[in-house]
C-alpha cells in the first residue's frame, strides 16, 4: 500500500492516534514524550505510530497534513497539532473532552 494511504488508514481507523518518536512507554523525544503523557492522562485508549520505526512514514507524514514536525496528534481524522498545541489544549481541559468524545463516538459506531 502507498505510504500516504497507510497514513490515511491510521488516521481514519483510529479515533485518536499520535505519530511520535518512540512509543508512549519509551518515547525518544521530549516533545513526543510530553504529548503522549498528556494523552495518557486523558484516560482513554489511543493508538500510536512510532515514526522512528517506519522510515516511510517518518519521511512522508509532514506532507500528509502539511505539518513539518513531530509529534502529530489526530482526533477524528483531523490534525489537532503538535506537542505545544496538545499540551495547551490539555491544560485548558479541552483535550480531555475532545479525546473522550472521539473514543465514545468511535465505540458506538463500531
Amino acid at each position: 500500500m502507498d505510504v500516504m494511504e497507510r497514513i490515511k488508514q491510521q488516521v481514519e481507523e483510529n479515533p485518536v492516534v499520535i505519530f511520535m518518536k518512540g512509543t508512549p512507554q519509551f518515547p525518544q523525544c521530549g516533545f513526543s514524550s510530553r504529548a503522549a503523557e498528556a494523552l495518557k492522562a486523558c484516560g482513554e485508549q489511543f493508538a500510536y505510530v512510532n515514526v522512528l520505526a517506519d522510515m516511510e512514514i517518518f519521511e512522508n507524514l509532514p506532507r500528509f497534513a502539511d505539518w513539518p514536525t513531530f509529534p502529530q496528534l489526530y482526533v477524528n481524522g483531523e490534525l489537532v497539532g503538535g506537542c505545544d498545541i496538545t499540551l495547551e489544549l490539555f491544560q485548558k481541559g479541552e483535550l480531555q473532552k475532545m479525546v473522550k468524545d472521539a473514543v465514545t463516538a468511535g465505540s458506538n459506531a463500531g
Binding site: G22, Q28, S32, S33, V51
Partner: peptide, 9 residues
C-alpha cells in the same frame, strides 16, 4: 521538554 536522544531515525 528535555531531550530524550531520538533526534534521528
Amino acid at each position: 521538554p528535555p531531550c530524550l536522544g531520538g533526534s534521528k531515525a
